[in-house]
């Protein structure tokens, strides 16, 4: 059994390399497709879908961040929307009230989220399992309550506006322009995560997840890596929060509530824990689902729940392991047939 798991995990890594880490030509192809995608969509008369693409990519970034923490390091967080909220409000306040340039606000707000992640990571060192879950839950709820009641700063329940993002005088004022901004940042986030996870720190995080004792025995500084994972994860959530704020041009407590945190958690489980392509698949799945079925009463919730159950039962490594599962099943069937004919 152990061996089977390892095989599947290695398979995952192989798939991962195949999707995002392979040769230049494959990447160029993917990049070109993503550049042309919104233009084709708009030409087909579905320009609002371009907005959805951006929303999906925003969720890809934060899901990836959560997967670094939960999937790779084994630390649960059910308050991740709180980091998004902090960064979203920070950027909206900095750019809207104080005229700070967007690019600077993006960095400051994401760093603030990372600092909070660091702050939450330190007490989290002493917590595990349920206790860590409760602590992060508390953080998420507290941010939501605070942003709702500190209305001088945040506009309370009425929310606040966020201005159009602009870099060096170029205003990202249409869905199409904003799409490319989000695409660039998403691409950078995925590349950075990929590189980090495939190098020494990434292996250290996975070692911490698989066995803290063994990791320590190999000379890995547990505290350092756990806290860093929290900070990096919150930094990703921060970038996503800022991009969310300037995509919708509006920030309110409702967009970063507990429901959103739970959706993020579902996304990494459905997509694939400890997998970069899995994070992407999960975010796409969980973001697109409610929009596809937005005209059918209650169906999105039921489908989301159902997919979660099905994945946990039949695809413990998430949607990302589906092709591999099919392949291995086919191989096994072929082997069975081969032995049968051999016997005969």
């Amino acid at each position: 059994m152990e061996r089977g798991i390892n095989n599947e995990r290695n398979g995952n890594q192989g798939l991962l390399r195949r999707i995002a880490g392979t040769g230049l030509s494959a990447r160029l192809l993917l990049g070109a497709a993503l550049i042309v995608l919104p233009i084709v969509t708009a030409a087909l008369g579905r320009s609002y879908v371009v907005y959805l693409y951006s929303l999906v990519m925003v969720y890809v970034i934060v899901t990836l961040g959560l997967n670094i923490l939960t999937g790779y390091t084994g630390q649960i967080s059910i308050g991740h929307a709180g980091f998004m909220a902090v960064a979203a409000y920070t950027s909206a306040i900095l750019t809207g009230r104080f005229g700070v340039p967007f690019s600077l606000a993006l960095i400051v707000a994401s760093l603030l989220a990372a600092a909070l992640g660091l702050g939450l990571g330190v007490p989290a060192l002493r917590l595990q399992g349920h206790y860590l879950a409760i602590a992060t839950l508390g953080f998420g709820v507290a941010v939501g309550q605070l942003s709702a009641s500190w209305d001088k700063l945040t506009g309370g329940y009425q929310g606040m506006k966020a201005p159009v993002a602009a870099i060096l005088g170029f205003r990202f004022d249409t869905d199409l322009k904003y799409y490319y901004l989000v695409l660039v940042l998403t691409w950078l986030s995925v590349e950075a995560a990929q590189n980090m996870l495939c190098s020494r720190p990434g292996r250290a995080l996975m070692a911490v997840r698989d066995s803290e004792v063994a990791a320590q025995a190999m000379g890995i500084n547990l505290a350092k890596y756990k806290v860093t994972a929290f900070a990096v994860s919150a930094f990703y959530a921060g970038i996503a929060g800022v991009l969310h704020a300037h995509l919708t041009r509006y920030v309110s407590p409702y967009d970063f509530n507990m429901g959103v945190s739970m959706t993020l958690l579902s996304a990494i489980v459905v997509g694939g824990l400890g997998s970069v392509p899995g994070s992407i698949l999960g975010a796409v799945f969980m973001t697109i689902l409610p929009h596809v079925f937005s005209r059918v009463k209650n169906l999105p919730l039921i489908l989301a729940g159902l997919s979660l159950i099905l994945v946990v039962l039949f695809l413990p490594y998430g949607l990302v392991s589906l092709p591999l599962k099919i392949k291995s099943a086919a191989l096994r069937a072929r082997a069975r047939r081969a032995t049968k004919s051999g016997n005969a």
Partner: peptide, 30 residues
């Protein structure tokens, strides 16, 4: 789902895809 991001998507879909004449009875502060 009482979320601004989804309400924006919904409004754009109604206006750009369904070409609604008017919006009637939109719900929720966010």
């Amino acid at each position: 789902g009482f979320q601004a991001a989804r309400a924006i998507a919904a409004t754009k879909k109604l206006v750009e895809q369904d070409k609604v004449f008017a919006l009637v009875g939109t719900l929720g502060t966010p």
